[in-house]
Simulated scan of single mutants.
Amino acid sequence: MIMMTPTTQYGRQAALFGLAAAGVYLVMIFVTLANIETLSGLRPFDMRPGGYSAELASALIDGLGPSGRQYYLTRQIPLDTVYPALMALTLVSLLKWLGSRDVSPKLVRVGIWLSVAAAVADYLENAGICFMILSWPDVAANTVLAASAASIVKSGLTTAAVLIVLLGAGFWACKGIRSYA
């Protein structure tokens, strides 16, 4: 049995999870979300980082029609059930890889928490979307508000987690340049 160093292990994990996440993301963007936009004439919930109103949510769900609502639940939601975990695992692996390269443990911990919290917010968003579609046409305004808030929180946390990874990579690169000079 070959033992890998943490650096190698985390690097491989980041690459594998990253490739899987990118593949799922591309399918969502170019297939399922594009189809939902074509069916409804509106950008899907997943593509609204600033959230949405009850009126917009109603217009989107109504515009999908019965088959579009079924498509959202059976095509987009399953993909978006896999994606948040893959994205979080990618970011966590990258952060652990950076941590094994002497990037601040505190920065790594914060980045890991942000990555996991972003995935949780994405799952809450997905639950809200499912609940809105399944309760159509009697969607409660509080349901839309909760799903919209989860979308906003997910976007903010994902952005923060990615920025932490970039900041850690920048620190690591600067250390390498200084030690080389």
Rank of each mutant, 00 (worst) to 15 (best):
A85D: 01
T158N: 04
Q13W: 13
A147Y: 10
A21R: 11
L145E: 15
L98C: 02
T159V: 10
A14D: 02
A22R: 07
G99P: 05
A117S: 12
S155Y: 01
Y72D: 02
T143V: 10
S58P: 00
R12D: 01
Y10P: 03
A147R: 11
L166S: 12
G128T: 06
Y25K: 06
Q13M: 15
M47Q: 11
E125P: 02
W97Q: 14
S135D: 13
C174R: 13
L89N: 09
L39C: 06
R101I: 00
T32K: 10
Y180L: 14
T159L: 15
V24Y: 02
I61N: 02
Y71S: 07
M47G: 00
W172T: 01
A149R: 13
S179L: 12
A141P: 08
G68N: 03
G50P: 02
M1K: 13
L94I: 00
Y123I: 01
Q70A: 15
E55L: 14
P66E: 15
Y71C: 08
D138P: 00
A127D: 07
Y25W: 14
L73F: 07
V153F: 11
R69K: 02
I36P: 01
A85N: 05
A20P: 08
G68E: 00
V103D: 03
L157A: 03
V103C: 06
G176C: 10
T7A: 14
I77Y: 10
T143N: 13
I152E: 05
L16W: 15
A161S: 12
P78H: 06
V120E: 08
D138G: 06
I112E: 15
A169P: 04
L95M: 03
C130W: 06
G156H: 08
L167K: 05
A140T: 05
F171D: 07
P137E: 09
V110K: 05
K106W: 12
